[in-house]
Nucleic acid binder design. Structure first.
Lengths: 217, 217
DNA sequence: AGTGTCACTGTACAAATTGTTCAGTGGGAG
DNA sequence: CTCCCACTGAACAATTTGTACAGTGACACT
């Protein structure tokens, strides 16, 4: 409150620090939303805790390099660090507006959750006939994941185990369990993935690690 | 390690403490899964932190009253505190096995997530023609919630605002925002609610608080 | 009545973790 | 050459963590 009275030489300086504070607030709310401490985020971004502390309170600015690291560690785009909107917004997302991830192997993934707001990640996946999430089983982070079959029949591999799921069935597992989903029905399939807490989507997207299955029993 | 060598008079005593330890481990993993500290859980259950500490380490047992409190605060049944299975289980839940909550106002809710495993709550709601989640808007806890329309057309009230959502549309909001869902389509409707982090279902089920809307503008 | 046993509380404590302060370093722009 | 500024590292006080310990009251079984 009293520190607002910091000496200001000119108008430019004040708007600069104001911009810093806006960024700082946003950064802080994002970090707290992810339940991260300064040190944890510092390690993720390869910076220091004190730096982020100063950053959040608008005492300093950040280089574009740092901004990139922050944004990716928090699972948001750099743009989202600046756009002051999305505050009072109730995030209505129309079906037609769903952002979709690059498709592959006969599977189109669409993101329903909006990273800065959510404490979860929600995807919808549409499988073509014989489509799958890829040839290998994947692991990412250490959160909880649920898969719900909205339409069709799929086979879910979890480590060594396999489960055939029909419409309305669901599975839960941890994201650290190697997993994979394949459409084994005679038509198209549609599933929903729910991940909580969010595993910082973009940050880890290219860090997905493959898993070597043991020889078949 | 060395404390394992505690004096044991007979076989009964050893199996008793063993049972205590099993319960303790389970309790601890549940608590940590909810990211609760001993004191937080103590306050929720109306007990003390030191008691829970001893409990988790198998130094003492618990009365049925305490067990009930623990279970409900953690959002699990008392039985789940004891069944040592569910360890290697990948929670497959068939559509026909979904536990359903007491229906009301033309809306049947079914729980897809299994409390002990999940970091989220997932419900599916089926609305009859004109059905709704109730006459009033409700508030519960302070988590994030997403609603996805699987079939039909619904109207979602969020505080003063109203949104008409069609199949495939979704909304995000915080659970502290007074909210309500109503089927306004010409047929049945089906939606999905996702809440993270979990707000300890059973514990709060009867603590849902109504919200008085302001006079219509 | 007497005597344990046992569930449970409250205080106290060491250790870890929190965010912040501060002095300082290095590099790029003027 | 020099100022500015992004950024580091160590040290800080304030909380918060889980645990230890000494108790209290109730119930069970002589």
């Amino acid at each position: 409150m009293s520190s607002d009275q910091a000496p200001v030489k000119n108008g430019v300086a004040s708007t600069v620090t104001h911009a810093h504070q806006m960024l700082g607030q946003r950064l802080k709310s994002l970090r707290l939303g992810r339940r991260l401490s300064l040190r944890e985020l510092a390690e993720m971004t390869g910076t220091s805790a004190s730096f982020i502390s100063q950053l959040e309170r608008g005492l300093t600015g950040a280089s574009t390099a740092s901004l990139n690291q922050m944004a990716s560690a928090l699972g948001v785009s750099v743009a989202m660090l600046f756009e002051d909107s999305a505050a009072g917004q109730h995030g209505v997302l129309r079906r037609s507006e769903r952002p979709s991830l690059p498709p592959s192997d006969g599977c189109r993934k669409m993101l329903l959750s909006r990273p800065p707001l959510s404490d979860m990640e929600v995807y919808i996946g549409e499988f073509d006939l014989g489509g799958s999430t890829g040839p290998a089983l994947y692991t990412h982070g250490d959160a909880h994941e649920m898969l719900v079959v909205l339409r069709g029949i799929v086979e879910v591999s979890l480590g060594e185990a396999r489960h055939v799921l029909e419409e309305g069935d669901s599975v839960e597992y941890t994201t650290s369990t190697p997993h994979r989903t394949e459409n084994i029905g005679s038509g198209r399939a549609e599933v929903m993935w729910i991940i909580a807490p969010p595993t910082s989507v973009r940050a880890e997207l290219d860090q997905y690690t493959a898993w070597k299955p043991l020889a078949a029993r």
